[in-house]
Simulated assay, not measured.
Amino acid sequence: MAGGLNEYIKHHLTHNVTEVSGQPFHFDTWAVSLVLGLIFILWFGFYARKATAGVPSKGQAFVEMVVEFIDGQVKDTFHGNRNSVTPLALTIFMWVVFMNTMDLIPLDLPGTLVTATQGAEVAEHSYFRLVPTADLNTTFALSVGVFFILIGHAISAKGVGGFGKELATAPFHAHGFMQIVLIPVNLLMNVIEWLVKPISLAMRLFGNMYGGELVFMLIAGLMTSWATFVPGVIANAAWGIFHILIILLQAFIFMILTVVYIAGAREHH
């Protein structure tokens, strides 16, 4: 490993960056996220169009099982009309699972492919990160999207005036002059509460996936020596199996918190 473990980790933590309108753009994150999103749409759309009332195929049965599971979770958490909430929850869960699962692909696969096609010298200066959710840009983009959806639900349930009134009068309810005095305090508290939601969603998912990616890189350092190769393989397999739980759990948490936040946004305080 040329340059040692530090250089190895630094290389694998570097994004494939290009410029868009003069700003850095993580091409690898965008490309992988787009491809995985399209795979989800094509996969589930294919079985949705071919769905039959008879005995389902294995593929259709799996898709139905996932949809029923997500709908059941939404039903337990959100007690309003689920026509738009369940598809949103399904999309979030499956897309995040797909992006998280990229962490199980060998770290050196992109470099190996570049080496095989363009040579080792080109591969040494090529960068491509496979895990979109280990990029803070991805998790914040998802959480910001959720944030605007929450505002949409709040306005839909309460109206623009009702939502604005709630921001100014809750959580510290008062009457008369004190109600006016408490408006700045209520606004500050509500702004903090609303901003914490997308920030916590983004940071939780990013932190877990970035940490998991980093552990895989550290374990890879054990495989550079014959003395530690076998322990490295064992540690890699053990962490990979445990990481499957993290992949599914983090997607589930992101999805269920989104539904919880939507339910809260529609409540009247």
Rank of each mutant, 00 (worst) to 15 (best):
Y8N: 13
K10R: 12
N16T: 05
E19N: 07
E19C: 00
P24W: 02
V32R: 05
V32A: 02
S33Q: 09
I39F: 13
I41P: 15
F46M: 10
R49T: 08
A51D: 14
V55P: 10
P56H: 05
G59V: 06
G59N: 04
A61F: 01
Q73F: 07
Q73P: 08
K75A: 14
R82N: 08
N83E: 01
T86H: 02
L88H: 01
L90Q: 09
L90N: 09
I92E: 03
I92D: 02
M94F: 06
F98M: 06
N100E: 13
D103E: 14
P106M: 09
D108R: 10
L113D: 03
T117M: 11
A123N: 15
P132C: 05
T133W: 11
T139L: 03
S143I: 03
V144E: 14
F148E: 03
A154K: 15
A157C: 04
A157H: 05
G159S: 09
A170T: 11
I183G: 04
V185G: 07
N186F: 12
M189A: 15
M189I: 01
N190H: 06
V191L: 12
V191W: 05
V196G: 00
P198M: 07
F206K: 09
N208I: 00
V215T: 04
F216W: 04
M217N: 11
L222W: 12
P231W: 00
G232H: 08
H243F: 14
I246A: 01
Q250D: 13
F252G: 02
M255K: 10
L257P: 01
V260S: 09
Y261K: 06
I262H: 07
R266D: 09
H268A: 06
H269W: 13
